Amino acid sequence: METNSEFRELAPNLWRKAYPLKMLGADLLRVVTIIRLQSGKLIIHSTAPFTHGDVAAIRALGEPGWLLDGILRHDTFAKEGRAAFPIIPYLAPPGFSEAVGFATEPIMPAPSEWSGEVLAHEIQGAPVARDTALLHVPSRTLVLTELVFNFDDHQPLWTELLLRVAIGGEHHPGMTRPFKAGIKDVEAFKDSMAEILGWDFDRVIVGHGEVIESDGKAKLRSALTAAGF
């Protein structure tokens, strides 16, 4: 996990940094992804307790264009994100603004400035989450929020125990039981997964856990199959 203000470059115009996110004593990580468009504008995917150093590091990458939290229950650091970048549009699912107490704009339809570089798809059938997946087309990278987690088997004991309760023994990657329980329209969910799996990607960045650097589509498909989809 990155411990300074530097964002790790994964591909041209794509960076990632993981922040601590403690839950019941386990660190589930809060992953922030930065996508730079050809215009130089940045999509800041997921909010975190940004330090002044973080803000400076982000601004060094380009012009902050949008904050984005891709799921309704992703409001943990929303106020910190808004404070760090108070002017730019804050994109989030409908209903997010009521949870955080300030105005946000819908992710869908995606801003026209993203055309040809970033695709967005709201995952249907799970209304409690309203999770949205992004595809960074040039780097063939899928960016997820909470559809799946990705932690290897070398976790501290308490983190491993929590992952086994939340996901099961296979969490490299795996769908959490709360996300699965929130799927109310299975056919709509499967249609969304077919749409996303039809995209051209190999790498997968998850909101909680490590990057899947290769074979991401096959691993995501396996995780969905293991969850019953």
Rank of each mutant, 00 (worst) to 15 (best):
M1N: 08
M1S: 15
E2P: 01
N4E: 13
E6A: 14
A11R: 12
N13F: 10
L14N: 08
R16W: 03
Y19F: 15
G25S: 09
D27T: 09
R30M: 08
V31P: 04
I34D: 07
I34Q: 03
I35T: 13
I35M: 14
R36S: 00
Q38L: 03
Q38M: 03
S39F: 02
L42D: 05
L42V: 09
I44M: 03
S46R: 06
A48E: 02
P49E: 00
P49M: 01
P49D: 00
F50E: 07
T51H: 06
H52C: 04
D54V: 01
I58E: 06
G62V: 07
G62T: 04
P64N: 14
G65F: 13
G65A: 13
W66S: 06
D69G: 05
I71N: 13
L72N: 08
D75I: 02
T76W: 00
G81R: 02
A84L: 07
A84P: 02
F85N: 01
I87V: 14
I88C: 12
P93M: 10
P93I: 10
F96P: 09
F96Y: 15
S97E: 15
E98H: 09
A99H: 11
G101K: 05
F102D: 05
A103C: 04
P111A: 15
E113P: 03
E113C: 12
W114C: 08
S115C: 06
G116R: 08
V118F: 03
L119Y: 05
E122I: 03
G125Q: 08
V128L: 14
V128G: 06
D131F: 02
D131G: 03
A133C: 13
L134K: 02
L135P: 02
H136Q: 09
V137N: 05
P138W: 08
R140S: 12
R140L: 07
R140V: 10
R140M: 04
R140I: 08
T141V: 14
L144E: 03
V148W: 01
F149L: 12
F151P: 06
D152T: 07
H154W: 09
W158R: 15
T159A: 03
T159C: 00
E160M: 06
E160T: 07
L161A: 14
L162V: 02
L163F: 10
R164S: 01
R164A: 04
R164H: 09
V165T: 06
I167Q: 03
E170D: 14
H171M: 03
P173A: 11
G174E: 08
T176H: 00
P178A: 13
P178T: 06
K180Q: 12
K184M: 14
D185K: 06
V186D: 12
E187H: 10
A188S: 13
K190Y: 03
M193H: 00
M193T: 00
G198S: 09
F201D: 10
F201T: 12
R203F: 11
R203T: 15
I205Q: 10
I205C: 14
V206W: 05
V206G: 07
V206C: 11
G207N: 02
H208N: 12
G209E: 13
V211C: 08
V211G: 03
E213H: 14
S214N: 12
D215V: 01
R221D: 11
R221C: 11
A223H: 09
L224P: 11
